[in-house]
């Protein structure tokens, strides 16, 4: 039978191509152009070569923000992924409580990011917020606006509250796709709950967990809104992660050249780490 070749299908890709070109490729090209120039406004640019890259890469400020960013990202991944799997394992697979659990889990994901930041800001205020007031009443010296440790605790707690649901829902989707025959076979073999988890549930969840880890990694590495509303990078610079620092340089100081260079370094780090995560997880799956 002759294969029909129809090139008209390419036309269906055209809208997506144009969309990506205008919202991703062209802005990215502009950022590359800005990163090698200096401007004082009025659309006038002066060539500066790789000066901004050198400046950013050797600046202590960038190293500190990157360190804080990595600490934040790996902390929330270390909490959200195991916690998400644990919650998904305890959720019912059948019965009337399934939709109730799913809706409850989906609720934090439906709240806009700035609202989450504002909500937690009020919730954690030491004088009027439920969390802040309760902790102080229990004898803890808690004040997230003054103490860096408390600010970090609140920031991580807020992210865990907001985003663990995503890991739960994805893990749950992986769990419900496992046919009953696997569990029946495990029962016949006398497998315990740990063996079932280790040899049936975890391998079957691997694909969705890869997506969950990648999404959470990329999202948390780009966190801006919630952290900005909750702590604004403070107290001092203690919670100034990369994106907050970037906005300070680009919009606060209007240093477009250094900000563009920092954006590109930031982008390359996210790209490289995402590739490493993806490759490692897919490699394990293949083996």
């Amino acid at each position: 039978m002759n294969k029909t070749i129809n090139q008209k299908a390419w036309l269906f890709v055209l809208p997506v191509f144009l969309l990506v070109a205008f919202n991703a490729i062209i802005p990215l090209m502009t950022v590359v152009n800005y990163s090698v120039q200096e401007t004082f406004g009025d659309n006038t640019f002066f060539w500066s070569g790789v000066l901004w890259f050198e400046e950013i890469l050797t600046s202590e400020r960038f190293h500190d923000s990157l360190g804080r960013q990595l600490m934040f990202t790996f902390s929330i991944l270390a909490i959200e992924v195991p916690l998400g799997i644990a919650i998904a394992l305890t959720m019912p697979r059948k019965g009337p409580f399934v939709p109730v659990c799913l809706v409850l889990m989906a609720l934090p994901l439906l709240i806009p990011w700035n609202v989450v930041g504002a909500m937690w800001n009020i919730f954690a205020l030491p004088d009027i917020g439920l969390l802040g007031y309760s902790l102080n009443a229990l004898g803890f010296d808690y004040n997230f606006t003054r103490q860096p440790g408390d600010a970090w605790f609140t920031l991580i707690l807020m992210d865990v509250w907001h985003w663990t649901s995503l890991v739960v829902l994805l893990s749950y989707a992986g769990l419900v796709s496992i046919p009953d025959a696997y569990y029946q076979a495990a029962k016949i073999d006398g497998a315990g709950s740990w063996s079932i988890f280790r040899h049936i549930q975890l391998p079957k969840m691997k694909r969705v967990l890869t997506i969950a880890v990648l999404l959470r990694f990329m999202d948390s590495f780009m966190i801006y809104t919630e952290a900005s509303v909750l702590t604004g990078g403070g107290p001092g610079n203690s919670t100034t992660v990369l994106s907050i620092d970037l906005v300070k340089i680009a919009l606060g100081q209007f240093d477009l050249g250094p900000a563009a260079a920092m954006s590109l370094i930031y982008f390359l780090i996210i790209l490289a780490l995402s590739w490493v995560f993806y490759t490692l997880m897919m490699r394990n799956e293949d083996s």
Partner: peptide, 15 residues
């Protein structure tokens, strides 16, 4: 395309 602040080296890079 002046707002994109093109330079020859960056154009060569994208090329």
């Amino acid at each position: 395309l002046t707002w994109m602040a093109w330079t020859w080296p960056t154009a060569a890079f994208f090329a």
